[in-house]
Design a protein around this nucleic acid. Structure first.
Lengths: 187, 187
DNA sequence: GTCTATAAAGGGATAGAC
DNA sequence: GTCTATCCCTTTATAGAC
């Protein structure tokens, strides 16, 4: 009793974690519809019924899998906003499984779509606050969708033309485009 | 016999067309997995078995639904390439159902993913041929994914921030960004 | 040619044994 | 607390009647 290797609660916590990790990976790879409870259980090496026991249903499992902490970012200025977006590219080229899972299903699963919209809207707000000019909100939205397109093309569609470039090359090529949007337009 | 209102072949052609139109709309709206043969048949007001009779299986129905004519575009110069891309925005804000159907499923359906990759690669090649500079291919890829992100955000996710802007505003705000990519970089 | 009936499979969910 | 067994629904696909 002096060395209770693992308490029940602890064991349970670990099993739950294993299931969630497996779920994230499969949702990220195949999307909501093509991911089965059975497959998740198989990958986590637990019984399918246990997955239901822990998460209730597939929808809640998905909800837990795509939930993640989001760091709050302070508003600054146009140049900083550009560099901030470019900086996320390092992250975006190896997105956390939770984000990938959400992105993979955002076009075909209602809840994932909602989460994606909310997340993108927050980013638009954040960037927008750092930009000058009348149409800051639209330009911020364009900057955000540019990053979205890049992520989709690179991470989800795995386009060769992007895969064969280094992060630095992409950042360097993209910077002038984002700068053009960050500056109040001459249009 | 002088007025055969509709030949068998003609009737069949029309029914097939009705099925395809219904399929495109549903695939565009819900994606491959969430679209059922039954729903397609219902929308086209035919028997589900008839859909199978005509198209064999769901996969082939999808294949026919997303197939579409693609106009060949001549290569020109950087400015023309930019204006060409911006010009497609008019189209992209009301994409043909076949394209929408393909895009909707591109992240979760293997065949749609392949079609999307091929289509994007063609566009990269086309734009790339019009650009000067060492890294024309990468810059063309970025321009293409920018348009992809915009389409996804606007048409599929229906982001408010984009929806509330007019085509002209978007074009005007986006032009400098694309121009920055079209010019051989100072990076 | 079109529809009825049904086969066959897959997978989410549940009850209850251990 | 974990697993066995199974239910039951949905959906694709087929066989054969009309």
């Amino acid at each position: 009793m002096t060395e209770p290797a693992l308490t029940r609660a602890e064991r349970r916590r670990r099993t739950e974690r294993r299931i969630l990790d497996a779920a994230r990976e499969l949702f990220a790879e195949r999307g909501f519809e093509r991911t089965t409870i059975r497959a998740v259980a198989g990958a986590a090496e637990v019984d399918p019924a246990l997955v239901m026991q822990y998460f209730g249903n597939k929808q809640r499992l998905f909800g837990e899998a795509v939930r993640m902490a989001r760091p709050a970012e302070p508003a600054t200025g146009p140049d900083e906003a550009v560099e901030h977006l470019l900086g996320t590219l390092g992250v975006k080229m190896r997105l956390p499984p939770a984000s990938l899972a959400m992105l993979r299903s955002m076009l075909t699963h209602p809840e994932a779509a909602t989460t994606a919209r909310e997340s993108l809207s927050r980013q638009v707000e954040h960037v927008s606050a750092s930009l000058p000019g009348e149409d800051a909100r639209l330009r911020a939205a364009l900057m955000t969708t540019i990053m979205l397109g890049l992520t989709v093309g690179h991470q989800l569609l795995e386009l060769e033309e992007l895969r064969e470039a280094s992060r630095e090359e992409i950042v360097a090529a993209l910077r002038p485009a984002l700068r053009a949007l960050a500056a109040p337009g001459t249009h």
